[in-house]
Nucleic acid binder design. Sequence first.
DNA 1: CGTTATTTGATACTGTGTTATCATTATCAA
DNA 2: TTGATAATGATAACACAGTATCAAATAACG
Lengths: 125, 125
Amino acid sequence: MQRDTSQRRAIRRALEDAGRPLGALEVLEASKGEAPGLGIATVYRNIKALLEEGDISEVALPGEPPRYEAAGKDHHHHFRCARCERVYELGGACLPDLKNALPRGFRVTSHEVLVHGVCAACSKR
Amino acid sequence: MQRDTSQRRAIRRALEDAGRPLGALEVLEASKGEAPGLGIATVYRNIKALLEEGDISEVALPGEPPRYEAAGKDHHHHFRCARCERVYELGGACLPDLKNALPRGFRVTSHEVLVHGVCAACSKR
DNA sequence: CGTTATTTGATACTGTGTTATCATTATCAA
DNA sequence: TTGATAATGATAACACAGTATCAAATAACG
């Protein structure tokens, strides 16, 4: 990935401008205006390259394919709409400040916290 | 699923006794003592049935196959060990009380909050 | 411009987790 | 105990997301 192609520009731009994390198919859709005829393989290829270059980062969701967002943001969390399945970015607040950090009109039905680390048993080895 | 088989008993028991959410293969392993020769298909079948009956619930994780735990627990979160890949149950505390709620010897490297709900745009329809 | 090597798009393929199939085994009501 | 039928185990089939392949298109260098 060293050449500057219209497809690559469109994909990078789509991710930068979205304001929320996008899945591979969302990237495809969002990029088609600027790069008609864009194929899904190219989207995957460029997402991979952008990840390796550190320009975007992966937003992993339980039971769903990952979304991608511009890298370098401050600590923040996400909101997934159960209807449109879009994922939004929430401000930096952690629970239980989260209610206040919600955009107007967003309704919460549940939340999930997953903590990553090393357990006591594994720490001993 | 209406008959009381040794396999079904073993699977239910494994999930009840584990004290932490188990994946399908973990269930298989944990049940083999009580039900030798147990097949993975039977594990999946019974997990599905137990889910439908509401006896267990699914713990979805980003980028991983789901784990399963006894249903009816109070609100709580999970901890995934990066080394052994086991998932543990954490007490009911939400962030930022989470640090105090950690079992002794558990080390946190990161955490994730995912909020579920309906966004403003979808609420309007 | 022309050459060369990278990127693209279409699509075949892969890997992983789960489900379907089906002959065999086991449960359970009579 | 027996007979109907549900559950099991082995494994084939499936679904999905992502990757490899390869001919054609195109960027980048002179």
